[in-house]
Simulated assay, not measured.
Amino acid sequence: MSRDSVSRFSHKAALYDRFRPHYPPELVAFLKASIAPDPGKTVADIAAGTGIFTEQIAQWGNPVFVVEPNRAMSRLARRRLSGFKNCVFVNGTAESTGLPSQSIDLIVSAQAFHWFDLTKTKAEFQRIGRHNLLVAVVWNLRNTDSSFEQAYESLIRTYGMDYLSLSQRRMDTEEVLSFFAPDSPEYRVFEHADDLTFEQLRGRMLSYSFMPGETSPVYEELLEEITKMFNLYQEDGKVRLSYKTRLFIGGIH
């Protein structure tokens, strides 16, 4: 992970922690089943952010290494996960996790894989993985099916500084498949949706690393546009964002 891919979230950490979506319970249950479930299996959440996904998998009770290089996000992850004694926090990246060799049975990465140097990451995962290591790559991919979702996407494209070059939408399926090659990962899609109040909608949009912050000259203009959009599409004080959560899971050799 480049320095920018780490540092660009520092001023967004609190918004990220509070407003980013969770992941479908069906996905979490599927991942749990993939490791038997065996309480002795060790999990590593790579680029764990503020621990949103980690919190869901930590409930299994398995040992979980929470690997995150951004200090602001890691601090919030420690707070979120303070009740889980099975979590161990590590200052590391996908390319250099800081984990012991042959120590991990399941590696998960949620909403972060597009930031990694995949060649270096694969070598690192192979180093830390035990025999029969599984790697799970997860994304919440926002739909653009409804009129509101199309307007939301349009607003992001208008104000997002480097959205198209940095969004997970740029991660081509072939690039993911090449990471697992010569093996072929299993691919699954899980659907879910969030009904958001105005505060939640505004917080979610502002949590994206590519959206303007409070010091930007267009920040107030953006807030006005978010307000107009919400008022136009809200029903009973809420709008709906729906997601397809994509999962690639398999071994790497």
Rank of each mutant, 00 (worst) to 15 (best):
Q126A: 04
G98R: 10
K122L: 02
H131I: 09
V66I: 15
S82G: 14
A110G: 05
A77W: 01
T93I: 07
L141D: 14
R80P: 12
I128R: 09
A123L: 01
T97R: 05
T119Y: 02
V90M: 10
A123P: 01
Q59N: 04
V138M: 11
A112L: 08
L106T: 02
V67E: 03
S74G: 13
A72I: 02
I52H: 12
V90W: 10
S96C: 07
L106A: 01
N70K: 09
N62I: 03
N86M: 06
K85N: 13
W139S: 04
R127Q: 08
V108L: 07
I104H: 10
F89E: 13
A123K: 01
I107H: 00
R78D: 07
A94I: 08
N86Y: 06
T119M: 00
A112W: 08
A72R: 12
R80H: 09
L134F: 06
K85W: 07
G61H: 00
A58R: 13
T97V: 06
Q56Y: 04
L81E: 05
K85Y: 08
G92M: 10
A77Q: 03
T54F: 09
F65I: 03
F53M: 03
A77T: 01
L81C: 06
L81M: 07
Q102M: 12
L118G: 00
W60S: 14
Q111K: 05
A110D: 04
A123E: 00
A58P: 15
V90S: 11
N86A: 07
G129P: 11
P69K: 08
Q59P: 01
Q102P: 06
I107N: 00
W115K: 05
V138N: 09
S101P: 04
S96T: 05
G98N: 13
V66G: 02
S74T: 13
L81G: 07
G92Y: 11
W60M: 12
L76Y: 04
R127W: 06
E124A: 00
V108I: 11
A72M: 10
A77M: 01
I57K: 13
G92F: 12
I128M: 11
P69R: 08
R130S: 14
Q102R: 15
R75C: 02
V67R: 03
V138Y: 09
L99D: 12
I128W: 09
L133A: 14
K85F: 09
N86C: 09
P100N: 14
N86E: 06
A77Y: 03
A77H: 02
T119D: 00
F53I: 02
T121N: 01
F84V: 11
S82T: 06
N140C: 05
T93A: 07
H114I: 04
L76E: 04
V138W: 06
E124H: 00
